[in-house]
Amino acid sequence: MCAEIILVGQTITGSRTPQRARALSELGHRVTMIPINRPGATYEDRPSLMDRLRYRLRRPADPVDANKGLVRAAERGCDVVWIEAAPMITASTLRRVKAVCASARLVWYAEDDMMNPVHRSRQIEGALPLFDLWVTTKSFNARPEEMPSLGVGRILFVDNSFDPHLHRPMDLSEDERRAFKADIAFVGTYEGPRAQSLLALAQVGLEVRVWGNGWQGLAGAHANLKVEARPVYDEDYARVVSASRINLGFLRKGNRDLQTCRTVEIPACGGFMLHERSAEAERLLAPDHQAAFFSDDGELIAQCRRWLADESARSAAAAAGRRRVLADGHDHPTRLKTILGHLAGQEPTP
């Protein structure tokens, strides 16, 4: 059944919101996108002093009037309002949406630990009870003492998902392979524990290449650690995974990660993944058969040495990991069908 869906979120390169917008359209739904960022914005833009102040106060600005844009779109009618990482949306806006389109169901899709106040705004805190469905990739956020205790009514935990258009094995030219190859690669933003682990690898003679924001301070720290001064997104990200012998997956402690988007994206790209151990990650991919896992830097080093030395086993595990995430339906279209099916069985919140 075709639905009219208003999708509110980022349109920045590298954001997964446009990926889900495309997947919804391919499922046959009519999607109206309401951006929350200015045209041409990037994750690398430096926030203004006022933006930083608002961030500390947890009262973000609405630089492109997304609240007004959402209400105008709802006035034309819709079945679902789907919101992702749009902390400037207010309770009064959502009430107005319900007033002009009483049948609209309100969905929030969260990839962060929303019990951490840094991921919540004052605006969203006032709107929590208004959502018909709160979707989270953080299993613990669905516990009664977590998001439900803050006013969320209906909550659904889902695993992370990947974009089948972007996250696929890449047929690399020789120039691309030279540009992106690595023995051990990590793609992601700087964090202290990650830096410590990468340096530990470099110090025992293993060559590591890191892509992402915030790593400049580690440039030159060790001859075996190559710091790229830029992030990689979308197809370039898939090229890094395809060109690298081992792709690392770290869990962010500040986000209480048990899995991340990388947990399914790397195997979807056909890359061999060495992932920080958690029960959820090991549920998604069988250890030593579809991915490898580590708990500390000592095990990380041992696992890298083991898998670098066995190309046949590494290739077999990478292929098995890709088969697993495809067979289990961890792609965006399948995940979105599950969420919308769950939503269809519910009455809208008054």
Score class of each variant (00 low, 15 high):
Thr42Lys: 09
Ala223Met: 07
Ala202Trp: 12
Leu201Arg: 12
Val210Leu: 05
Val210Gly: 05
Gly345Cys: 13
Val158Ile: 05
Gly126Ser: 01
Glu145Gln: 11
Arg283Tyr: 08
Ala142Asp: 02
Tyr237Met: 07
Arg209His: 03
Arg322Trp: 05
Ala23Met: 14
Phe250Tyr: 11
Ala73Val: 11
Ala104Pro: 08
Gln10Phe: 05
Glu276His: 12
Asp175Gly: 06
Gln346Arg: 13
Glu176Gly: 10
Glu311Tyr: 13
Arg277Gly: 09
Cys304Glu: 12
Asp296Trp: 03
Arg323His: 10
Ala104Gly: 01
Ala219Gln: 15
Val204Cys: 03
Ser244Lys: 02
Arg322Lys: 07
Asp331Ser: 09
Gly329Cys: 04
Leu199Ser: 02
Gly40His: 09
Ala74Asp: 04
Ala66Val: 09
Ala319Leu: 07
Cys101Ile: 05
Ser48Trp: 10
Ala195Tyr: 03
Val8His: 00
Arg314Cys: 05
Leu258Pro: 11
Gln259Asn: 09
Gly214Val: 02
Arg105Lys: 07
Phe162Ser: 04
Glu84Val: 04
Glu299Leu: 08
Gly298Ile: 11
Arg324Ser: 02
Leu284Val: 03
Arg76Val: 05
Ala85Val: 12
Cys304Leu: 14
Trp134Ser: 00
Asp45Val: 00
Phe186Thr: 10
Leu285Gly: 01
Pro35Ser: 11
Arg283Ala: 10
Val241Asn: 10
Arg122Trp: 07
Gly254Asp: 08
Leu300Val: 10
Ala229Ile: 12
Asp297Ala: 09
Pro117Met: 02
Gly77Val: 03
Ala229Thr: 12
Gly77Leu: 04
Ile36Leu: 07
Thr334Trp: 13
Glu235Leu: 13
Ala99Trp: 05
Asn160His: 15
Leu106Trp: 01
Pro350Ile: 12
Ala286Leu: 15
His342Trp: 11
Arg277Phe: 12
Leu284Pro: 07
Arg322His: 04
Val232Pro: 11
Met170Val: 15
Ser103Ala: 05
Gly217Cys: 04
Gly341Pro: 11
Leu201Ser: 05
Ala21Leu: 06
Arg143Met: 10
Asp79Asn: 03
Gly321Arg: 10
Arg306Phe: 15
Arg143Asp: 11
Ala91Leu: 00
Ile339Ser: 14
Asp183His: 07
Asp296Glu: 03
Gln203Ser: 15
Arg58Lys: 07
Glu44Cys: 09
Gln303Ala: 13
Ser15Gln: 12
Leu70Cys: 06
Gly341Met: 14
Arg16Ser: 07
